[in-house]
Design a protein around this nucleic acid. Structure first.
Length: 666
RNA sequence: GGGCGCGUAGCUCAAACGGAUAGAGCAUCGGAUUUCUAAUCCGACGGUUGCAGGUUCAAUUCCUGCCGCGCCUACCA
């Protein structure tokens, strides 16, 4: 609603400027005034025009305000300060439309989007860092779906890497387990926890004797090769841990459509196809001297002087790429590194590889949805994955360089359009505060104690496991629910506690902007007060309580209320200081899709978290100020109820996009 | 060394493309509704936005230099 009106305003201003000054403005900045008293939109464009027109900003503002004529939905434009143009909405009209939930989205873009997130090594339990990734990714998927985009969710499974190999080594060489024993263990409820500890022990074992690293290398080769006992064991482990990850994420309502596995990228020879293309396109070249002698290398992303080397590298120059600017793609022993496989995988994502995975069903969610996994030879009948128009890779900031290399490879091959639609959805890591580390029982060096935060390390077994954190949140919420609602059944209380725990966790991971390192601290993460998910959930529950106690239906109330009332009828309630306070609430409620557009455009879900919190804050203040059910003015009471209905609807919507549901009671 | 990022209230964080008086939460202190139950609300305290320059009508935001911190910088994945 807010967004559509903003567009209308921009259009009118653009037309006016074009008509009057003969100028086409490419971009018109619209801001939000610091106070609603100034209006709903602020345009600083007079400042900018002042230079070009050689006139005082205030003069220009006056010309625009007096000349632009009426804009549907707007009361008027006003000049403020040195030349701001503030636009005022017709509050009553907006309220009627908002109440009836008129929110036409006319600009749905076509083309399928692929979002890749989670991508946890299937060798140990998921930890808080993985939670941030999955929650950001899942929320971004929900944002796109809210904007009516078609989205596939993929979770890349690196089942042939060193990390899986390490756990295999742990089972075979430290624990001396047989395949049957491992299969037995893999059926245990929290097998991923077992692997977590074992993985840390293996790292220890490597450190004890460098010769042990040879064992790892052998295991790694065997797993990559496939078709042998070691690979079979690796498969048992990675499949079992993967199932655990899916279960963990499902607790947070995070689901995937497809799980491409690295083993299939290898066995289906995706790399061979990509390698041929890269060689033919001159994107990579064979180094014949120096440190990288015998390797196929690529120019390291971001270091070249000419931004658009565009064309396949000219015959000259290749061997002039300095060693430090080279990225090894194929090692001198002929094996391909991680980036090479990633290039192949991304060619497949865009439908440029000429090969496809096999598919089979892997996991069915409680809601009946299927999650598919790659195989060498799969089912004949399967959904279509890959060949998409746009991709978003939710991968932490540490891998920025590897991501750029893949994008550069696409450009090198001439796929500029695809490269332009390749977004590295980058975010910072979750680290632990020294206090948190101490709580977990880790001995810290004096140096570490002085740091603002300490990086999580799966290798050292240093971190907070996702399921543990969620369990603690549920226990904490359950205690509170038990005390408040003893009349409910155990099952009902558990459901509510889980909803609150998920709300707290998801909100916690979303409230930080992506570029901020989260220094994880139990006290903050376990909080249900202040800027938290439960605070927002509670606001919605309170809104619901009003309707429940009053015997009204909230869903029909908003819309019907609008139909019953004329705009003029509502107008009087928005007048004056008290009216403006309520108007602020309506205005904030109107911004959901506006905020969501911002979140998508900037790949920043934190804006939505902030927005729902602010709306909840406004609502709680309103709730406190207006005892609605005891209101004796029937007409006013209906207006207040309509206000609550709209806020409740928008808050519920915003929370749903963040993957947070609303408990029946709190 | 090079690349990327960060530095804002005691603590944790916001501040959309450069805009009007830099905002929240936590903590601390003081208050509120026998109600639509307080996981709430109101108030107080708290700032030279790391430092120094520059660009601009306007800088937390852009540019340069410095200081401090983090990450990346393997023929690991």
């Amino acid at each position: 609603m807010y967004r559509n009106l903003e567009r209308r305003l921009i259009q009118h201003v653009r037309d006016f400027v074009s008509r009057t000054y003969g100028m086409e403005l490419p971009k018109i900045v619209v801001e939000q005034p610091p106070k609603v008293e100034f209006g709903e939109y602020a345009l600083p464009l007079a400042f900018e025009l002042a230079k070009k027109l050689r006139k005082a900003p205030r003069k220009i503002a006056e010309e625009i305000v007096s000349g632009i004529g009426p804009i549907p939905g707007f009361e008027k434009l006003e000049i403020a300060g040195a030349g701001y143009i503030n636009a005022r909405l017709k509050r009553d009209e907006m309220a009627v439309a908002l109440s009836a939930d008129e929110n036409p989205r006319t600009d749905v873009q076509s083309g399928k989007i692929l979002v890749e997130h989670s991508s946890i090594n299937p060798n140990k339990a998921a930890h808080v860092g993985h939670l941030r990734n999955a929650i950001l990714g899942d929320t971004f998927v929900r944002l796109l779906k809210f904007a009516r985009r078609e989205v596939d969710v993929q979770n890349y499974i690196d089942n042939t890497g060193a990390q899986v190999a390490d756990v295999v080594v742990g089972f075979l060489h430290i624990e001396k387990k047989t395949r049957e024993e491992i299969e037995q263990l893999a059926r245990q409820p929290r097998f991923d926890y077992y692997c977590w500890d074992l993985y840390a022990r293996v790292s220890q074992w490597y450190a004890e004797d460098k010769k042990n690293l040879q064992v790892r290398l052998q295991a790694l080769h065997a797993i990559e090769e496939g078709g042998n006992e070691t690979a079979a064991i690796a498969d048992v482990i990675s499949i079992a841990v993967l199932r655990r990850h899916l279960e963990t994420m499902d607790r947070l309502d995070i689901e995937y459509d497809f799980l491409p596995r690295e083993s299939d990228i290898l066995h289906l020879h995706f790399w061979d196809a990509a390698f041929a293309k890269l060689k033919a396109g001159g994107v990579i070249f064979f180094e014949t001297q120096g440190k990288n002698n015998g390797c196929w290398v690529m120019r390291r992303a971001g270091t070249s002087k000419s931004e658009s080397l565009g064309q396949p590298a000219e015959s000259s120059g290749q061997d002039q790429v300095a060693e430090e600017d080279q990225k090894v793609i194929v090692r001198s022993n002929g094996t391909v590194g991680y980036v090479g496989k990633d290039i192949a995988y991304h060619l497949w994502k865009f439908g440029l590889l000429g090969r496809d995975f096999g598919y089979r069903k892997f996991y069915r969610y409680p809601n009946g949805r299927d999650c598919w996994i790659s195989t060498a030879v799969g089912a004949l009948d399967h959904p279509h994955f890959g060949n998409v128009a746009e991709i978003y890779n939710v991968i932490d900031a540490r891998q920025a360089e590897a991501q750029s290399t893949v994008i550069e490879a696409l450009r090198g091959l001439g796929y500029n359009q695809q490269a332009d639609h390749y977004t590295h959805f980058s975010y910072e890591m979750v680290a632990l505060t020294p206090r948190c580390a101490t709580e977990l029982g880790y001995q810290l060096s004096d140096e570490d104690k002085g740091r603002p935060y300490i990086e999580v390390s799966g290798r050292k077994g240093f971190g907070v496991k996702a399921d543990d954190l969620l369990d603690r949140l549920i226990v904490s919420a359950k205690g509170e629910v038990d005390g408040r609602h003893p009349q409910l059944t155990e099952g009902e209380r558990s459901t509510i506690a889980t909803q609150i725990a998920v709300g707290a966790l998801r909100y916690f991971m979303l409230k930080f902007t992506k570029s901020s390192v989260i220094a994880f601290d139990f006290k903050e993460a376990l909080s249900f007060e202040g800027e938290t998910g439960p605070y927002v959930q509670y606001a919605v529950v309170r809104a619901g309580n009003i309707f429940r106690k009053g015997g009204f239906d909230p869903d029909e109330f908003g819309g019907n209320a609008a139909e019953r009332r004329s705009a003029a009828d509502l107008g009087k309630y928005f007048a004056g200081e008290a009216g403006t306070e309520i108007w602020e609430l309506w205005l904030a409620a109107s911004k959901t899709s506006y905020i969501i557009d911002q979140c998508i455009a900037t790949t920043e879900p934190a804006y939505l978290a902030k927005h729902t919190f602010q709306l909840a804050q406004l609502f709680n203040a309103f709730y406190h100020r207006h005892p609605i059910l005891s209101e004796t003015d029937e007409s006013l009471k209906k207006f207040l109820l309509a206000t609550v209905a709209v806020v409740r609807r928008e808050l519920t919507r915003g929370l749903a996009v963040m993957g947070i549901s609303v408990p029946a009671v709190m």
